[in-house]
Design a protein around this nucleic acid. Structure first.
Lengths: 235, 235, 235, 235
DNA sequence: TATGAATGAGGTTTCATTCAT
DNA sequence: AATGAATGAAACCTCATTCAT
């Protein structure tokens, strides 16, 4: 995987050279930088920020550790970049939903579908949403702010849905936390190399949060009200 | 990573989780041991295993760091205990669902409700599901095995639901990963000190995964098929 | 410091105060104390001072660690006691040699034989001669002084032997270091449970340092001068 | 001494070879590695493994503690290396003796002389023979095996000597333990900075174990049998 | 008296980060 | 530009030693 990554980078650099006599330094730099982000992000998402040493990342990219510092001020800067990327994707998804959704429910579902799809595509880079607390304080503040805004908008979608009748009365915070949890958990288990594509995943998630798991034909409401009655925490 | 946020567990410990009632000798040992697990688990879940030093935990419990080693062989053993606890709760929930659920859907929903409720109750102690990769290899193997079994059963519930008609055709793996992700994410954001109780949370989650977000009156199916059509990954 | 010292003082005081009828308590104390010295000394000699924790010693004696401190001020006091014991035996051997030896050679050999025998008998307690550097500084100074005196006397024996013709000219320091090394090494390998008794060992050592390894019949002197000629360090 | 050590290393590295002005990377690494072994070995031999902290060694070498880990996996690995070195020298000495000795006695004496000389030359590096029990279990097993083989060969030399008449009947195990003890004890007291060279030491030891301490003219055998008669352990 | 519990001091080890080539 | 070497900071852990029962 790292090998492939590296291959791509070099190839891209070559092509640049052949086409225009001088490959711009900055382009090369940007390409390598991106390669580092992707590889590190993938590792962070998979094993966790602290379980991934720079040595690991460097080894995977076939570069040396000091080289790393040509591209990032420090390890935490890299983590910040990953978070930033994830938030970019989230905001993009939100914007997409706002553009294309009519009702509140529409927006929520479009957002979920879009985000999951893009999430699955970029994957590793965003898997680290988990490691929020490893961010440097100043970075953390920035990310926190964007996250808050993000959540506020999502809860707004839900509220909107309740208002326009597309979503039944509920606590928006819980609803949002529920589906965002499901989404954030994706990198823990999903692999694009698996039997399902990211698109399928997005579709499935959207459907689940749209209609739930119950069969349309079954009189699920009744079954539920009956079966869930025994207090579940009687252990 | 000095700047990274440290577990601010002290606050929670102030209430005196350490110094409590004084029962017998062995019971006391067990009680203290459990207190360590809960406090550490809470911190691990909130800040991450590596962002929580034993010093933090010790300070929160008003004990010294070495004292810690009277109760656990090492830090990873504690993490393992947390995982074990989480898995115990999960299996208990599964058993509960198997006892009380009629259809596949029933079992899934009962399991979700039970698990979320118990999860929220014990909270911190199970938050560490995230830090699977910080486990010692031999512990990891054990946890992996139990997890696999757990997932298999859950997927079995879904398959059963498809077979008995209570759940429409779908990929069980995706469905299970979806709601387990939502559940595992809970400790990241939920606080029992917040406006909602664990019971309410459990209820809300069960409902979401039962009927989805759409209003019963709305012709959601149609809206969905129309609105979700544009390729969402056009970034 | 000198638990021994302290003990003596108290004992003297006791005797003065209560005149007679010493309760068996003190005897018990002395017995247990000796048991601790023997067990710890054995372990120290076998595994080394630092590879033997007080937990180990306590476990071996079926007592608890704090109990240990009823008998010794600290771990190093115990080590000091062992050294003291070893030196006592050494000085006793020296005195024996001085009393019974006629020539310098006699004294050396008698000393070796006596010391080895007694050494093998007490064994563990003296095995720690090795761990001189683990002594507390103030103890180390005391031991050093006695050791110096001890060595000086032994070298005196050798010098005496050279003077009286019983030992051929040589460097006394080397000779003494040679046989003392052999003796000090005994506890590393010798076990009184083995096929040889301490007496046999003492006899064998005395013989080796008396006549060497060469057969009396062989013209070893010549063989040696010939065979040893090639520079041995040509590696 | 550390200063001197370091000086040597740098000198060797700086001045380099005639052939290639600068010693290759690997050579430098090897040189420094060896410097660490020598210094650590010296310290271990003098003060004991546990009385020598890595801080001490680092300070002596004018490096920082973590630097150490570029050359050795951990402290025990260094100890193992010391043992390995000592065994290498021992086996080399054995081989030398086998090549150059005619009788069993020859072999024993050549071995002693060679080993002591080389031992004194490399000194510190082998002083740790004492700290066998501080080895990691897997290392200990390896060392034990080599030691057994080594001892077996030495006892073979003695047996051979008895068979060919160059050594009088005796217990080979005791004899070997005797002179190996004397040798292993050397680093405890010998300093190459002292008045005697390693060669002189080797010569002296060989002579002692060849002909013993008795003067050639004296009728030592008789003196011994008479003088040693009183039971030496009558304390 | 004797012991389970607790801790301070100190050592080994890791790792992000800088230095020097 | 890129890398092998070096290090400061901080974490985990051990153990002799004391506290409190």
């Amino acid at each position: 995987m790292p090998q492939a990554q590296r291959g791509k980078v070099e190839e891209a650099g070559m092509t640049g050279r052949w086409r225009s006599a001088v490959p711009s330094r900055e382009e090369q730099h940007a390409l390598k930088r991106r390669a580092v982000v992707k590889e590190a992000g993938r590792a962070f998402g998979r094993f966790g920020f602290h379980n991934t040493s720079l040595d690991d990342v460097a080894r995977a990219l076939h570069i040396s550790k000091p080289t790393f510092y040509r591209y990032f001020e420090n390890k935490q800067a890299l983590l910040f970049e990953c978070h930033t990327l994830a938030l970019d994707l989230g905001e993009e998804s939100v914007a997409f939903a706002q553009r294309n959704g009519a009702t509140g429910l529409d927006k929520v579902l479009l957002m979920i579908r879009h985000y999951v799809a893009v999430y699955a595509r970029e994957l590793g880079a965003v898997g680290i949403v988990t490691d929020f607390h490893s961010l440097a304080p100043e970075h953390r503040r920035i990310v926190q702010k964007r996250r808050d805004r993000f959540d506020r908008i999502l809860r707004g979608f839900v509220s909107e849905g309740i208002a326009d009748g597309s979503i039944p009365p509920c606590d928006p915070r819980m609803v949002v936390s529920c589906f965002m949890g499901a989404i954030n958990w994706v990198p823990v288990w999903f692999s694009s190399a698996g039997p399902r594509s990211g698109e399928e995943l997005a579709e499935a998630f959207a459907r689940i949060f749209a209609t739930g798991l119950q069969s349309a034909t079954a009189d699920a409401g009744k079954a539920l009200s009956m079966k869930l009655s025994p207090s579940p925490v009687t252990s």
